[in-house]
Amino acid sequence: MADLTLASADVGATPKMPMSAEPARTILALDLGTTTGWAIRGFDGLITSGTVSFKPGRYDGCGMRYLRFTNWLTEIDRLSGPIEAIYFEEVRRHAGTDAAHVFGGLLAVLTSWGELRGVPYQGVPVGTIKRHATGHGNANKQAMIDAARKRGFSPADDNEADAIAILLWAIETQGGLA
């Protein structure tokens, strides 16, 4: 089941970050939503990004999107991990009730998945991500895509661009500890 969701992910550019003397930690960055943007830096320093859809099928029960997300996380961890840290876009306001419910459900799955495996996770405020990527805390979707392209990536959409920005923020600020 998880292989199908990975196969349907749109994989973006893979620029390599400068390597230090010690191996890089595997970091996963997520822009949670029905179409989830993701970016991961592997232990080798290679960054891969894409999107994956957790839209429920016509005959799916309410919990299937969350089971698919759990399976996807486990598969990413198996293929690229072990994941040592997870960063996600911490959204405080949603335009609609459905988006808020989906975000909350995916966040619950993500945090419980991390807790079960001892993987630390951290939410990053939207304004922090946008300011780091573009210099403006209220940048629009196109500005985020343009900022990712300027850094050598080819995001398919704003979800992937946001995930890339979160990952770059985590790497460049040591997750806010710099």
Score class of each variant (00 low, 15 high):
T5Y: 12
T34H: 06
A21L: 11
G127K: 13
L46V: 15
H136K: 13
M17S: 10
A156P: 09
G104P: 04
L110T: 02
R78S: 08
L46G: 14
D60G: 15
F54S: 09
R151F: 06
H94W: 12
E172M: 13
G45F: 00
A24Q: 07
V52G: 00
F69W: 09
Y121F: 14
T128H: 09
D60A: 07
A99T: 06
G45I: 02
D31M: 02
E84Y: 05
D98K: 09
L46R: 11
K55I: 01
Q142S: 13
M1Q: 13
A13E: 09
D98V: 12
E22D: 15
K16P: 09
L28G: 00
A143S: 13
D44V: 11
G135P: 12
T51F: 08
S49I: 07
L177R: 11
I83Y: 02
T5R: 11
G152T: 15
P56K: 01
D31Y: 01
D146M: 07
A163K: 08
N159R: 01
Q122T: 15
P125M: 15
A13F: 09
N71K: 07
G127V: 06
S112P: 02
M19E: 15
G118M: 03
I145K: 02
I76L: 04
M1T: 12
D157S: 15
P15C: 04
A161R: 00
F88C: 08
V109H: 05
P82W: 04
I166C: 02
F54H: 00
